[in-house]
Amino acid sequence: MSAGPTRRGLLAAAIAVAPGLFLVANAAPRPPGSAASARNRWDLLIDTTRCDAGCTACVDACRQEQGWGGPASDGPWIRKIEAIEMQTGRSVSLPLMCQHCAEPPCVEVCPTGASLRRADGIVLVDRHRCIGCRYCVMACPFAARFFVDAEVHDQRAATPRGKGTAEGCTLCVHRLDAGRLPACVEACAGGAMLFGDLLDPAAGISQALRARASTALRAELGLDAAIRYQGL
């Protein structure tokens, strides 16, 4: 396949316009029925300079996709935070969700091992094992774990959730396992969210992370989070 000037241009445009879409197809998806593998490490890069203060597209998409947010007591798997730097007065808008740490406090503290980190980096709650003790909710530095305290009805088929268990952002693991993007990334109109495989050096996200500075939230805790932010 020869990459002429028009094709290169198309490639460049694809990287800029459809963040992640090109990149997930680049990494060959797992054969159906196979387990998650450590040869992938899913990362999310959020460019806060492209994140609008009033926009909640990612939040709305997640609610629609995962089915949370009906009762008022439901915790927000993703939420928008408006931050003002106290020393300078600069304001920034950013989405906050489970940071899918490589050293997750929630996994360490879970008494039954229900809170787990998959081989490809996604931190999940195995609701079959969760006893609802809420220790993971206590432990999370980002308040990204929540407890379901009311009966759940009309769950999404791909996202079982139920009363008495803990939950949080799954990085749309059901979509990833089918080779698709997380709902929030797809919904972001401003192009602020870039998703991909950190272990693929050719992936757009790897290139973007090498090219421009980014930070992880509460980096001093040594969590090695999969979510990184630019513009903070």
């Binding site: 927000p76 939420r79 408006e82 931050a83 730097e85 106290m86 939230l217």
Partner: peptide
């Protein structure tokens, strides 16, 4: 929680 030290935070949560 001090999610961003040095920053003042607001959210629906």
């Amino acid at each position: 929680r001090t999610i961003l030290p040095g920053w003042q935070l607001h959210s629906t949560f």
